[in-house]
Design a protein around this nucleic acid. Structure first.
Lengths: 340, 340
DNA sequence: TTGTATGCGTTATCAA
DNA sequence: TTGATAACGCATACAA
């Protein structure tokens, strides 16, 4: 048998005081006499009273929940960012909904609708596509911060300089003596991917090479399987045209590629050097430790959450901020030429 | 400038009808005349009205949200289970909070408190420890279903027969000609781990071997790093006593072990055969494809969610159910003896 | 210091 | 078919 829901009224009755006093004990304990406070607290304990957030929310007009809508909950990158978000939220007594759009625009839309109904205090989102018009609708009601994506100065955003990341990766590969370099990732219209590619091109040009030296192998999404497929395509290229190095737009793709190479008997980094992106935990732990462009994941999450809470506290006088972090190249075995 | 929150009253005023009619349009559109319905719908569109879930919740007395409190959001096993949960929830117009206890009992307690305040309709949880007394408190108010863990017939639970899984794995290794077999996982007091170990022992006994042939290497948690450490310990054993096969209590540990072997120049499966547990996506994609005991992850999630919704609909007349699925051994390269 | 009364947004009941 | 109104649980303004 389930206990009936106890409310503030039941507590008041049990303690022999009014509901206002119970509320005071909960919210302004100093304004209540010691004796009364103890009485009320005992009643609360005896009844196992738990505040009803729906009532508080309705009364307060705003919730104590934010949401983080991610592209792919099974990508460690996002769970690491989420960790940073949760920390800040906890410090502020705020709960975090973790929602997974799974790179599906309709799921994203569903979740945004749901979150709007919940009147969450704010939403952190890495949008499925770069068209933010859909988000515009919601933004009129709910503060939104873009994570790992920029939206111009009309939006708060937290990201990492992906052009710089691409440059770091490819400059490193050039320094390791590689001429033909593959870029693997997609879809190419995605801002992050496009920026990383742009950085890669800049590095090629800065080295005085021809852009033809960069072989773009686009993928549909960025998961392990796509990396394996790209590996097959890479090995299918004629020897003369085959790149000796690959820069992958994320680590899942890089790990898939690495695995396909190993499986096919190709040596990494001997036959193909590999640099990934994100530096997820698996990267350093791969069979051949993976070089990768590290993003400050938890910091990204922390900063995004702080921006969101700031905006939610000062809705009108709020100036949108675009925070851009710098990536860092972590060199491991997968990209080190043995001849050096 | 942020738009003021529009409510059902604003819609009513705009459409020139009463709030009851607006509510009818939203909830029982058939009971409203076509003309009125159109008027109201136009007002809703013009004002960009979005229902306030807090109000609905307060009125209805119950929320349309459930929560899934996982041990480790970055373990693909849990995100796969979560996918099953979300599917069922979506089919029922219910939202899912995904909460990450990160194997930390205090975080788990915090979240349970938070969820109780939110009056979520139910909670799916894989508890941090096997002492369910803490959960008992909440259960009096909120339906709880244990996921991947059993709690006796006083609880609804969904799990997989871990004893059987352990037997499958070790029987297979014995059939592959191995005598000394390592069991790697922990903490050993965890029910799942203990059950898998028990299954492993049964398999040894069923084969007429001595239980001394099973070398238990306990780990503190079950992540990649612990697997690598276990690998070092394994290789540190004197040749004569060193197991030629290892059964790991999850895939992360197995992958860590596999990687440590490869790094140390040991051959898998030649020097050490490996079987993991869970069959996460990475398992089949590892440098040496990993044999693993597969759990029906999404089905686990679906079933758990269905059980939870059933219980939440019929609180008192509810009979607790313990659903136990059977694991399946997926044999890949990592455990195949070449001599066979 | 404590009690009373009101309203947050929604839905359901009942009357018109 | 539509409208008026009460109620959900809580927090606050104000009165005592």
């Amino acid at each position: 048998m389930r206990a009936a829901a106890t409310g503030i009224k039941d507590v008041a009755k049990r303690a022999g005081v009014s509901v206002g006093t119970v509320s005071n004990v909960l919210n302004r304990p100093d304004s209540v006499s010691d004796a009364t406070r103890r009485k009320v607290q005992r009643a609360i304990a005896e009844l196992g009273f738990i505040r009803n957030e729906a009532g508080r929310h309705l009364r307060a007009g705003r919730s104590r929940t934010i949401a983080y809508l991610v592209l792919d909950a099974s990508n460690p990158f996002f769970t690491d960012v989420a960790k940073g978000v949760e920390e800040v939220a906890r410090e502020n007594g705020i709960a975090v909904y973790l929602c997974n759009s799974d790179s599906d625009a309709s799921r994203e839309a569903d979740y945004l609708g749901l979150l709007a109904e919940q009147r969450v205090r704010g939403i952190l989102v890495t949008p499925v596509d770069d068209d933010v018009t859909q988000l515009e609708l919601f933004r009129r009601r709910i503060p939104i911060v873009l994570v790992d994506r920029a939206g111009g100065d009309e939006w708060c955003s937290v990201g990492v300089d992906d052009v710089e990341g691409g440059m770091l990766a490819v400059t490193h590969l050039i320094e390791q003596g590689h001429r033909r370099i593959a870029f693997i990732g997609g879809p190419l219209i995605t801002v992050q991917v496009a920026d990383r590619l742009r950085g890669a091109r800049s590095a090629i040009e800065a080295a005085g090479r021809s852009v033809d030296d960069l072989v773009v192998l686009p993928t549909e999404t960025m998961n392990f399987t796509e990396g394996q497929r790209a590996g097959e395509r890479l090995l299918g290229l004629p020897r003369a045209r085959r790149p000796t190095a690959a820069f992958c737009a994320n680590d899942l793709v890089a790990l898939g590629l690495l695995q396909q190479m190993t499986r096919s008997g190709a040596d990494v980094p001997g036959d193909v050097a590999i640099v990934g992106y994100d530096d997820i935990a698996f990267a350093g732990a791969a069979a051949v430790p993976l070089s990768s462009v590290r993003q400050p994941r938890e910091l990204l999450g922390r900063t995004a959450a702080e921006l969101l809470l700031a905006e939610s506290k000062d809705l009108d006088g709020h100036a949108h901020q675009q925070v851009v972090f710098h990536p860092e190249l972590v060199v491991r075995t997968s990209s080190l030429s043995r001849t050096e």
